[in-house]
């Protein structure tokens, strides 16, 4: 494992911890898209189907369990916890799941490396992860008021994707036959979706003003 991959995983982990911190300690999910969180739960559930049958490393198994567990507990918190659900901005979080899930499923059925249940589900999870942030980005744009933790959560998620691209570049040059078009293209699209957010994030950081996305 190279430094970019590890940094990417740690950034991903940090994003989840920031979100859990916000939800668990402040008991608020204001500005957080439940749709995006449900899509992430679906992403991990379909990607880690082989968690108990295909052993890679202790590290991988633990991280998979953390991502699965945190994704589902975040969804549970927002839907069921009596304090947290009150802060959920339902009226602005209106993105429809099936606009995202259905095209990804169809694409995975059409474009994959191998037509088996596991590989198609794995491919589906890659496509879905690429666009799962969309409801969150739409919600941020509609919410005039982005709090620090929400801004940091989205920034860390974007940073995780950018680091994964560096990881692929590194692996391409250091490992023989390391070519993965499906992963790369969906990963690149996923990272590009953050470009706009990154721009305004750095602007607000540089000018030391509150983060706000233009309508």
């Amino acid at each position: 494992m190279n430094i970019f991959r590890l940094a990417g995983d740690m950034t991903h982990l940090a994003s989840v911890l920031v979100l859990l911190l916000k939800i668990h300690t402040i008991k608020s999910c204001a500005g957080i898209s439940l749709k995006t969180q449900e899509l992430y739960a679906l992403v991990f559930a379909s990607r880690y189907l082989d968690i108990f049958t295909h052993y890679v490393s202790f590290y991988n198994t633990v991280m998979k369990l953390i991502f699965l567990g945190s994704a589902f507990s975040i969804v549970w918190y927002i839907r069921r916890h009596k304090l947290v659900r009150r802060s959920y901005d339902k009226d602005h979080d209106t993105f429809r799941h099936y606009f995202i899930v259905l095209p990804c499923l169809i694409l995975a059925l059409l474009i994959h490396e191998k037509f088996t249940f596991r590989v198609v589900m794995w491919t589906f999870s890659l496509y879905l992860e690429a666009v799962a942030i969309l409801p969150q980005l739409v919600l941020l744009q509609r919410t005039r008021n982005i709090d620090n933790l929400t801004g940091q959560y989205v920034f860390l998620l974007g940073a995780y994707r950018a680091l994964y691209i560096l990881n692929w570049v590194y692996r391409y040059f250091t490992e023989p036959h390391y070519v993965h078009w499906i992963t790369w293209i969906s990963g690149l699209i996923q990272t590009l979706l953050y470009a706009d957010f990154f721009y305004y994030y750095f602007q607000s950081w540089k000018n030391n003003v509150k983060l706000e996305l233009p309508a």
Partner: peptide, 10 residues
């Protein structure tokens, strides 16, 4: 490690 699998990634 490679040969058509990035499944060692998360």
């Amino acid at each position: 490690t490679s040969n058509g699998s990035t499944k060692d990634e998360l």
